[in-house]
Amino acid sequence: MHEASLAGGVLQLVEETAAREGFQRLLALRLEAGQLAGVDVRALRFALEALAPGTLLEGAVIAIEEPPGQAWCLDCSQTVALAQRGDACPACGSFHLQPNGGAELRVLDMQVE
């Protein structure tokens, strides 16, 4: 379950930011885990909640947005929705796709005090 290591990375990022910016408490954390990122959002949420006690994550509201995947089709020159890697272009059936959205895992923002 690589979501546990991803959660550890998120916690490390929050702690480093707290040390640099001088905040004592994280009120809310908003993440983005695109549908093509290969992240099980439920497992990531579970891992974050398991790490939370005794850390800055404790008591914070955690929101995880899941933007849809999209790709550029090299054959029909269109940006198309892509539910998962390996799918064909819904417009022309080609498999020559370059993902260009929904593959990110990132912290969007934090509310702190």
Rank of each mutant, 00 (worst) to 15 (best):
C89L: 10
A52L: 11
S94R: 05
S5W: 07
E16G: 06
E32Q: 06
R25H: 06
Q24A: 14
G93N: 07
A83K: 05
L36Y: 12
G8M: 12
L105Q: 02
A19K: 08
S94P: 03
G101L: 12
G54A: 05
V10M: 09
A103W: 14
E3H: 05
V80M: 04
R30I: 02
Q12C: 05
D75A: 06
Q78S: 11
V107M: 11
L108T: 14
L6C: 10
G86N: 14
R20W: 09
H96K: 15
R30D: 15
L56P: 01
A4V: 15
E16S: 12
E49K: 06
L105H: 10
F46M: 02
Q84T: 09
A91Q: 13
A43C: 04
F95C: 10
A7V: 13
L97R: 11
C76N: 03
A19R: 15
R85G: 05
C92G: 04
G9C: 06
G34I: 12
L29P: 00
A83C: 04
H96C: 07
S5M: 09
C76E: 02
A52M: 11
G86S: 07
M1F: 15
N100I: 15
L29W: 00
G102M: 12
R45Y: 00
I64H: 01
C73V: 10
G93I: 08
G54W: 01
L74S: 06
G86D: 11
E15Q: 14
F23Y: 08
T55E: 09
D87C: 11
V39S: 03
R20T: 10
Q12P: 05
V14S: 00
I62P: 00
G86K: 12
A71D: 04
E65A: 07
Q84F: 12
L82D: 05
R42A: 14
S94D: 10
L6G: 06
L74P: 01
F46E: 00
T79V: 07
E32F: 01
E3Q: 10
Q70S: 14
L44M: 01
S5C: 11
G22Y: 13
A28L: 05
P68D: 14
R85Y: 10
L108A: 14
L27A: 03
L27S: 02
L27W: 08
G38P: 08
Q111K: 13
G38A: 08
A7R: 07
L108P: 06
H2F: 14
A81F: 02
V39Q: 02
L44K: 00
V80L: 04
A103V: 04
A50R: 08
E16N: 11
Q70E: 12
P68A: 15
L44H: 01
I64L: 00
Q24V: 11
R85A: 09
F23R: 08
I64Y: 00
A60K: 08
A52C: 06
L56I: 08
C92K: 06
A83Q: 09
V10Y: 03
S5Q: 12
F23M: 05
P68V: 15
R25P: 02
A91K: 13
Q70C: 07
G102Q: 08
E65C: 04
A71E: 02
A19I: 07
F23T: 12
A4G: 05
E66Y: 04
D87H: 07
T79I: 04
A50W: 09
G38L: 07
F46N: 01
